[in-house]
């Protein structure tokens, strides 16, 4: 008996849980309600309502990814250098919120940002003007950064601690300044971590509908919200599937761009 047969159930799940569903969503995307072939669902992305939602989603995802990177990289460097507390306890503190349900974490920001919420009450106390960002794209970006920051911290930290201390010391010995070491040694060597961090923040931000719905108050429509509403409210599944296909294309394009960047970076190291 061949051992290969043990992978049978796995193959069944790949077939029924991944490949067939992808085929089904593609089928819905290129047919209309009666089942005849059409490209209308995919071309529907060109309508102002849909293309604006896609553009806004790309923009907000890009902004929150950049903010996460700008916060996480220095954080990773500090965590790498400092031997704070017992092994990895400090890192554990920064990763811990990841284990808490992201809807609860998003709800927390709702409570904080509300018009009569805690932040505004505190601002009242000290006599400062109100912070009115709830139900705006700014609040959605804040929610994305808050929810997905640990996904950026973890891979960057993991890449940073793998860097051989001697390589950095060698760079200093050869006369490199600290900005040079950072840009020419540490950054390229941690690039794989940065790249996976970017993917892990960018894709969920681009496709989210929960964060934008909870913190955008229905006023911030991202492509994820449009697709979700096609399935839950308007029940035009074909249109929803078609728009999902377009969104997938954008995910694949962004991943290809990121991958290319990664390869270039690694080429520089060699």
């Amino acid at each position: 008996m061949s051992r290969r047969i043990f992978s049978g159930p796995f193959l069944l799940f790949i077939l029924c849980g991944t490949l067939i569903p992808l085929g089904v969503i593609a089928y819905y995307g290129i047919t209309d309600r009666s089942g005849s072939f059409t490209l209308d669902n995919i071309l529907a992305i060109a309508s102002p309502e849909h293309s604006e939602a896609l553009f806004l989603a790309l923009l907000l995802a890009l902004i929150s990814t950049v903010i996460c990177l700008l916060i996480a990289f220095p954080l990773g460097l500090i965590l790498k250098d400092s031997r704070l507390g017992k092994k990895g306890f400090m890192v554990f503190i920064f990763i811990l919120p990841m284990w808490m349900n992201f809807l609860l974490r998003t709800m927390a920001w709702q409570v904080l940002l509300e018009r009569n919420g805690i932040i505004n009450q505190l601002l009242d106390l000290v006599g400062l003007p109100h912070l009115d960002i709830i139900n705006t794209p700014a609040a959605v970006v804040l929610g994305m950064v808050y929810d997905y920051l640990p996904f950026m911290v973890l891979p960057i930290y993991n890449a940073l601690i793998k860097i051989d201390r001697h390589v950095i010391e060698a760079a200093y010995d050869l006369g490199a300044s600290s900005p040079q070491v950072l840009l020419k040694v540490i950054a390229p060597l941690s690039l794989p971590g940065i790249v996976s961090g970017i993917t892990m923040v960018f894709v969920p931000s681009l496709t989210t509908f929960a964060v934008s719905n909870m913190l955008g108050g229905g006023k911030v429509n991202l492509i994820g919200n449009i697709i979700e509403q096609e399935f839950t409210v308007s029940s035009n599944w074909n249109l929803g599937a078609g728009l999902s296909l377009v969104m997938m294309i954008f995910i694949v394009i962004s991943m290809a761009l990121i991958e290319k960047f990664d390869k270039n970076g690694e080429g520089n190291v060699l």
Partner: peptide
């Protein structure tokens, strides 16, 4: 090939995975 297929659900957006399973 199988390890590549294994990665699809990891890389795919949750919303696409959810919708595709629901439709199926």
């Amino acid at each position: 090939l199988l390890m590549g297929l294994n990665n699809i659900p990891l890389l795919n957006a949750d919303i696409v995975t959810g919708i595709s399973l629901m439709l199926s």
